[in-house]
Design a protein around this nucleic acid. Structure first.
Lengths: 148, 148
DNA sequence: CTTCTTTGTTTACAAACGTAGTCTTAACTG
DNA sequence: CAGTTAAGACTACGTTTGTAAACAAAGAAG
């Protein structure tokens, strides 16, 4: 059994397609093309290409139904979002991630419920939070590091 | 005067270079190559290419000093981090961004101070936070949308 | 002054990506 | 049954990215 590589990297344009399928849970290319060609200036063949690439990557499943296919997501939206964000954060200086999150929280529109949940989770983290997270931009044996 | 495009998109590999320069604030190619060829399996020419591209993009300034250049960041690290994260979040379903943040906060190592700052900012947001943030995956005139 | 070395520039090349035309085939229409 | 569509497959092409070799110029060393 081949462990299906769910780490499939989804490009920006492909992300648009995934969002449609995630939202509709199951749909056909006609619907995707219809919705996306409105939102963007994309031609039908462009969207077909994106769908094809997503199927090849294993991000979408295509099950034949008569003449056409029905597409369903093979990866969860939330998992993809989490992975994309953590991945992005991962390549940034560990010391500054916290500040970046503060800025993000400041700028993002969040529901009352989301804000409360975040507070709860953060409160839970407080007791065990380390005094500081060191910069990891340079090799460990290097004296210099980012400033706080 | 040309408004220098600070929206310069920095690729993953380039990001590694920027982190070195951000941390050292000003440095030369020798230092960058030295540090990066240890961290990764990159050959010197690879890193030279990355530096060159960053200079062309305007992310790094190169000021000649004798035979070589001194490189300094032209964009702030924190600004780049914020932009990258917000950009990533921007292409995701608005309705699910909050949950993604919760997952990120859960998984990330944050300093006590960062956690407290996040709590403070979130507390401040609570009063004005909307009841819910609607899904923006489909056109507005479409009945369907993501589930909570 | 000639040679070695360091630093930067040019060129290279495959994979991924954004964008889209063309072709084929199967179904719908009349 | 023939013509028209619509869906998917195949092909295309310029750009960006990751990765690196080759080359040139300018100092450093002898």
């Amino acid at each position: 059994m081949v462990t299906t590589e769910l780490t499939a990297t989804i490009s920006d344009a492909e992300w648009r397609v995934m969002r449609i399928v995630w939202t509709l849970k199951e749909t056909d290319s006609h619907t995707i093309i219809d919705l996306l060609s409105k939102q963007h200036d994309w031609k039908a063949p462009t969207i077909k290409t994106l769908i094809g690439r997503l199927v090849k990557k294993g991000a979408l499943a295509a099950t034949k139904q008569g003449r056409q296919y029905r597409y369903t997501p093979q990866i969860s939206e939330q998992a993809a979002m989490d992975a994309a964000l953590l991945n992005e954060l991962d390549q940034m200086c560990a010391m500054h991630r916290g500040t970046a999150l503060v800025h993000v929280v400041d700028q993002l529109e969040l529901s009352h419920n989301d804000v409360q949940t975040l507070i709860d989770h953060l409160e839970a983290k407080l007791p065990t939070a380390p005094d500081s997270v060191p910069c990891d931009c340079l090799p460990a044996d290097c004296e210099r590091s980012c400033e706080s």
